[in-house]
């Protein structure tokens, strides 16, 4: 009986709380708030907060056109794999200080898991056979390369700082990082970690492909890039993945840098974490979205590999010398 119960709880974890349903609602709300705040900043009234929900369910009801030139299986399978991988990442990220599913993946694995949703979009676009999708996926790949270097530097510096304190000199597992922060204060307060935190906040819009860095899905230039040939339910699933990605990355930032402020009760922690994520999205995604214009792809690459990487490098060097 115990196994059945524990597997049910396990299933509950996957499908309900930190899993699919929680991500769905959190992702949709965050995107809704993001669109509303951007509108408010442009003195517009902006769509209702639940607009992404309406978009998602409308797309679920629309007809799915599969172009004749497309490779049908990959075309339909790509969005589903992308969504599944995105939700799986969310399961590993500890909700503030209490990791729910720990012991499966660590920081480097998360770095690689973040590739899968982007790859799902790339292979979806490439399977549709449209030239717009070809240009879109080429830009998306350059965006991934651009965001990789800062993320690598940030993760290595976090691993080094936590490793120093833990004595093993190196610690990649998220649960240890959460435990360390619960023990002696969140990493954000350490001097060497502030540049890494800033770099991480600058990487989030790039990684999720939000406005200034959305050369890959520029609806004005290349007709929604990789999603040019998608309609109906697959398109809805892609939009959902995009929404959950925004939430996951901000949750990752909270887990890495603001770990220590948990209260122990899981649900309350989740609400606090969601609130912090919303505040972070407003400042670092909506404000940047409302204020800047879209970057060309090589400006984006140069920006990430020079400006943001040096900030992250500073924190790595500081962490290296044990600050």
């Amino acid at each position: 009986m115990a196994i059945v119960y524990s597997s049910l709880v396990y299933l509950g974890y996957i499908l309900i709380f930190p899993g699919f349903l929680f991500c769905f609602v959190a992702g949709m709300l965050i995107t809704g708030i993001d669109r509303k705040i951007v509108a408010k900043m442009q003195k517009r009234v902006g769509p209702p907060i639940l607009q992404p929900m309406y978009d998602f369910f409308k797309l679920m009801g629309k007809e799915t056109i599969i172009p004749a030139a497309a490779n049908k299986t990959v075309f339909l399978a790509a969005p589903i794999v992308g969504l599944a991988a995105m939700v799986v990442i969310q399961l590993f990220i500890p909700v503030i200080s209490t990791p729910i599913l720990y012991g499966t993946a660590d920081l480097i694995v998360i770095l690689y898991l973040l590739l899968i949703p982007a790859l799902a979009e790339i292979y979806g676009g490439s399977a549709s056979g449209s030239p717009y999708a070809g240009v879109g996926l080429s830009r998306e790949m350059v965006t991934i390369i651009a965001c990789e270097l800062p993320l690598v530097l940030i993760f290595l510096s976090v691993a080094k700082t936590v490793g120093n304190a833990m004595g093993t000199g190196l610690c990649f597992s998220l649960s240890d990082i959460a435990a360390y922060q619960a023990a002696n204060g969140s990493l954000m307060l350490k001097a060497s970690m502030i540049p890494a935190a800033i770099a991480m906040l600058l990487v989030i819009p790039g990684e999720t492909g939000n406005h200034p860095f959305d050369a890959a899905e520029a609806e004005t230039e290349i007709c929604e890039g990789m999603l040019a040939e998608y309609s109906g339910a697959p398109l809805g699933i892609y939009k959902l993945t995009h929404a959950i990605k925004t939430f996951t990355l901000t949750a990752l930032f909270v887990a890495l840098f603001l770990g220590g402020i948990g209260t122990g009760i899981v649900l309350l922690d989740a609400l606090i974490e969601f609130a912090i994520c919303v505040v972070l999205t407003i400042i670092f995604i909506s404000l940047v979205h409302a204020v800047t214009a879209r970057l060309k792809i090589e400006q984006l690459f140069k920006y990430y590999w020079t400006a943001v990487s040096t900030i992250a490098l500073i924190s790595l060097v500081l962490a290296w010398f044990g600050m």
């Binding site: 290349i222 040019a228 309609s231």
Partner: peptide, 22 residues
């Protein structure tokens, strides 16, 4: 779609490709 008339209040959005359009 500009702030003065703001059709986005009703969810209107310009889509890039006909596949996304209603």
């Amino acid at each position: 779609l500009t702030p003065r008339y703001d059709a986005e209040r009703f969810g209107f959005k310009l889509a890039g490709s006909p596949r996304h359009a209603d």
